[in-house]
Write a protein that binds this DNA or RNA. Structure first.
Length: 164
DNA sequence: CAACTGATTGTTCAG
DNA sequence: CTGAACAATCAGTTG
């Protein structure tokens, strides 16, 4: 008997049991506590220790214009949009129709977050599922990235664009 | 003129 | 385990 482990919400299992696929994908779905200054320092050290990690990401991209500027971005796969972002896409359209005056993501984001919390588990699972597949793909890229990093992360020398 | 910020939550990584 | 930071997006603001 498939008694699964839905001790979480369970709510109405009459809908579809396919929702479980989103929850137990990985074991690090914990994250939600407050903060301990102790750890804060630790993490800060880590980031600083890193070469340069990512330069603020997207923001710099715009500034970069046509220059790559960053060399580590070539290997580091960008984070795929989260389920929330997918929901945002859909919500954005709907929100625009209802509030044509408001177009800023800031306002929508607030409305989205509020609604997001009101959404039922099964409803959110739809987006979670999408994110799951996305991560799967991302996982491969990440594996390759790590593997290559351990390998020596050398190779790939196409800085023909800019010379110095 | 051009770039950054802000706001939302979820996912990610590294120690 | 935990925290810090980024993922999209676009109007608004600043330099």
């Amino acid at each position: 008997m498939p008694k699964k482990k839905p001790s979480k919400s369970e709510k109405s299992a009459s809908s579809s049991p396919s929702v479980n696929a989103a929850s137990n994908e990985r074991s690090r779905m914990v994250l939600r506590a407050k903060s301990t200054e102790k750890m804060k320092r630790l993490a800060l050290l880590s980031r600083e220790s890193e070469e340069e990690w990512r330069p603020k990401s997207a923001k710099s991209v715009k500034t970069a214009g046509g220059k790559k500027g960053v060399k580590l971005d070539a290997k580091m796969p960008k984070k795929p949009p989260t389920a929330f972002f997918y929901f945002l896409e859909d919500f954005r359209k709907d929100y625009k129709e209802q509030n044509p005056d408001v177009i800023s993501m800031r306002d929508i984001g607030k409305a989205c977050g509020e609604k997001w919390k009101t959404m039922s588990y099964e409803e959110k699972v739809q987006y979670y599922d999408i994110a799951n597949e996305k991560r799967r793909e991302f996982d491969k890229a990440m594996a390759a990235y790590i593997k290559r990093k351990e390998s020596g992360e050398d190779e790939e020398t196409e800085d023909d664009s800019n010379f110095e």
